[in-house]
Structure formats: C-alpha cells, structure tokens
Design a protein around this nucleic acid. Sequence first.
RNA 1: GGCGCAUUCGUCUAGCGGCCCAGGACGCUGCCCUCUCAAGGCAGAGAUCACGGGUUCGAAUCCCGUAUGCGCUACCA
Length: 519
Amino acid sequence: MSQRSDSSTPPTRASDSHTTTSGVARTRFAPSPTGFQHIGGYRTALFSWLLARHTGGQFILRIEDTDTERTVPGAVDAIIEGFKWLGLDIDEGPEEGGAYGPYVQTQRRDLYLRYADELIAGGHAYRCFCTPERLQRVREEQRARNEPPRYDRHCRRLTPAEIAQRLNEGQSYTVRVAVPLTGKTVVKDILRPAEIVFENTSLDDRVLLKSNGYPTYHLAHIVDDHLMRVTHVLRAEEWIPSAPLHIIIYQALGWEPPVFAHVPDVLAAQGGKKLSKRFGALPLLEYRDLGYLPDAIVNYMALLGWSYDDKSNTLSREQLIAAFDLDRVGVAPARYDEERLLWFNGYYIRQLSPDALAERALPFLERAEAQGGLPDSVARPLDRAYATRVLLLEQERMRTLAEAPGMTAFFFLTETLTYEPQALIAKHMTAESALNGLRRASATLAALPAWEAAEMEARLRELVTELGLKPVQLFTSMRVAVTGRTVSPPLFETMEVLGRETSMRRLDEGIAALAAHAG
RNA sequence: GGCGCAUUCGUCUAGCGGCCCAGGACGCUGCCCUCUCAAGGCAGAGAUCACGGGUUCGAAUCCCGUAUGCGCUACCA
C-alpha cells in the first residue's frame, strides 16, 4: 500500500495510523437527528463503514443531539433503519451499546462539562456573559464596517473579580474557546496533499458550551471521538473551515487528533448546489419504497467520490470491503445521477435468484393499488409460485421493483381485457387477415396436446409460413390479444405461464373484439 | 466582504512527468441478435484535460496567477 510519506506527517504517534490503511480503523458516523438522512449523508457513512470493515476495525454510530431545539422525534429510528436496510452493520451505537457509551450526546453532558472546566482551568477557554442581543449588535456593526463578523472577545478580557461577581449574580454564560492570538494552525487532511494553513487571527472564539449547559458540536465531537478512540474522522467538507478550531482544542486538551478525511459533497441533480433536504434529496428510506435494492444503492454510492480502478463498475459488498482505500477517495464534488442509479438497480435486479426476486418484489405487487400495487380486483395474497414465474419473465426488464405491478398486471387480471382494436392489427395487415390469423392460431393452439412454449412456437411458426405472413405480424396480433399490450415478455413463455385456459379465452376475446370492429 | 475547498467527455470517473492527439461506466446514436420490449454483443459520437503563464528534452500530471463553482462565516450540526 502506498503511504503518504512526506514532511507533513503529523507529530509522533505510536502507530502509523495516519497512513490510510495500515492499522485498524475505528470510524464513526455522527448525525444529528434533525431530519432525514439522504444519499449524501449515507455515502459518507458508507465510506466510514467500508474503512472500518476493510481494516478489521469498528464502525460506531453516535447521535449528536445537542441541539435539543431542532431534534426531530423519530429521526434516530429512521437513521438506524436506514443502516439496517442498507446492510451496514453497526458495532457500537445507541442500540448496540459498547465499551465507550453512551452513544447519544445528550446522555454525556457531565463529560463535556468536565472538559469545558479543564479548558477553562488551563486558560484555553473562558466564560462569556454576553447576551444574544449584544452579540447580534456587534455582528451588525462589523458587517456595517465590512469586517468579518467575529466575536469581539469582550469577555476574554474580564478580570477574575469581574467573572466572580457575574457568577455570583447568577448571570448565565457560555464557554468559548480562547483561540491563540498569533501564529497559524495547520490542518492535515489525508485526502488532500497540501496542508491547509489557517492564520489564527482569522479564527473565531466559538462557543463550546451553550448557556443551557449543552455542548456545541465543536466540543462534543472532540471529547467523544477521543474517548471513543476514533482513529479516522470522515465528514463532509463543509467542516474544513472549523477544522483548525478543532485542532486547537485537541492541542489544548493534550490529545492527539484523529486522521481527518473531509469527503467531497454530493451535488443535487439540478443546479450546482449540495444535495440537501431543500435541494433534490430524498430520504434514503424513500428509495426502499420506490423499489430500489440496497446493493444497488451501496454500489452506486461507493462510486460517488471513490473508484477502484479504470474499469470496475459493479462491485459486490465483499469486493468493496476488500478494495476500499482512502487513497482512492477523490476530492471533487460528485453530482447525483438518477439514470446511473437506475442502471445499477436494474443490474442488481437481474442478479437476483428467483427466490430473492419473489421475496423482494411480492410486497410491491401486493400493496394496495393506490400505493402502486396490482389492481385491487386481484386477490391477495398472491400465489407465490405463480408470481415467481411471472416475475422471472419481467426480471430483465425492470429497473425498479415498483415497476413490477404495472408490467405484470395482465398476468393476474381475471376480467376481460379491453382492446384497442387497431392494435390487434399488425403492420401491413388488414382486419381480415389479422382476424384470420388469430382464428387459425386459436385452432392450432387448441389442438396442442401439451401447453408448452417450445411446442407452441414450433406449431405457430409453421402456421406463419402457411399463411404467408411474417412472424412479427401474427405474433403481434396474438400478443395484443393475450396481454392487452403491444409490449410484453416473449409471447410463448407468456402464454405458458398464463396457462391454457386464460390464454385461449383471451385469444377468443381478442377475436371477438376484432370481429366486432371489422363489422 | 473575509476565509477555505474544488475544477478531465452531458454525468460518475481512470490518470499520480513520457504507456494519453486521454481509458472505463451511465446516458445517447447505429448495427447485430430477435415475435414486441428489454437483456446481451459490436461499433460510434462525445473532453482544445477551466483559462493564462511558467518549470522540463517532454505536463492532464509539478509551480504561480486568473476565472468559475461550492462551502463556512450561529449559544445548528
């Protein structure tokens, strides 16, 4: 494995975990339960999971719910359900527990308080008694002067006596990090060759502990990642600007930072914006209802920003785990492309065994008509053996499971099909010749001893020759009569599955419809 | 405004100084197969490697600048 060996190798570390794949990686996905997670979020989670699995490490799920105002009930369950559906197993998390729990931040308050105190004691943080009103006023003034809006560090200059007095008065306060006033902070991102250097003077004394006693992301994730022994932090690139702040806090606490990998955004299909709830993103679980397969989603997501080589396209989960390497994660944003996802989905549907196909598609057939299922006139539950044979005929034509009902309805309908008479007449045929062809075909099939596709085809092709037609002419008329559609799986296999009785009845109904039309 | 990240076919990408007048995949076009539609096979169109300067015998690959896009700029994450 290639290593990023250059002068930017971080300070001393016992192991060489700053290289991409040597060593066991403990990774985490740390969403905040403020809404649904979409492909973009799960793509980052997938990379983390893949890295953990590739190195034989652990994958942790941690819920960052410190913004209690924005927490949405049910969001955690949905996030976890998404992981289950995708088949990304979690080693430590709210449901699994683990040696470094709890894995929900609101249950770890005392920890953050303790480290906030430690930072204050060390002079790396300070209490800020400023009111929201003052802060806003300061920002507005700065903006008016065309200055970057930053906290003016008013409370950083408070004397011990002043602080004691305000504390005594019971004034509420936040805790802010005391960013070094000079120097630079270097952020190392393993995905990017160059160090990212920030002037400390450009940094803000961000709030670490809110006045309600909950930590902000900046404090909480650092405490957690360190205590949970996380080795690699994969997160969205929007975190790069605050990364120097995090480095400063790690240093203040005397902790070795983990390896950072800021992964590129996934962009919405339309416009150049980041995929988000507002721009083109669907909740992941929505894809389940739309008939997508987890394997397809995983394969598709893996290739958004990561690649294996110059030709591999479809990779199984096992191959993904074996091949995944941070070295091959790119840095340019990738656009969400539904056509490509659809292709992957069709591919994975085609790979399904008959049993697996039935297992996955049956729920789509059986759900209510209003939900996209088969017409309500079709009795549920479906005969599984019959449904499986039907599904097999349409398998290579489906791009999503949700397409199954529309494609297979004619296999299940018991009522008489409605025909577009004109459709029963193939190209370069007249109503008379079409009618004659159908009648002869009906008679030929009626005389068949066994209802078997190969036999039907042999006899019917003889008939085609005898009538001086082209196969497409007779078979098109028959297809419309038997299926009610101009597009269907191969005619003879379709009739075989449909059965003698139904096939013959529809043929006759088609003949009747055409006869009525021809007058 | 400030700070930061990014920039190869429409899209996802390969490429880490000569193998590239740039390879693969999706999509698109045509042909083959063929009872329709798919699937499959084959072929093709499609990228002045954002632009401009360098460095080098040689640059998509290294350096600098410009442009454009995106992100951050909350007691949200």
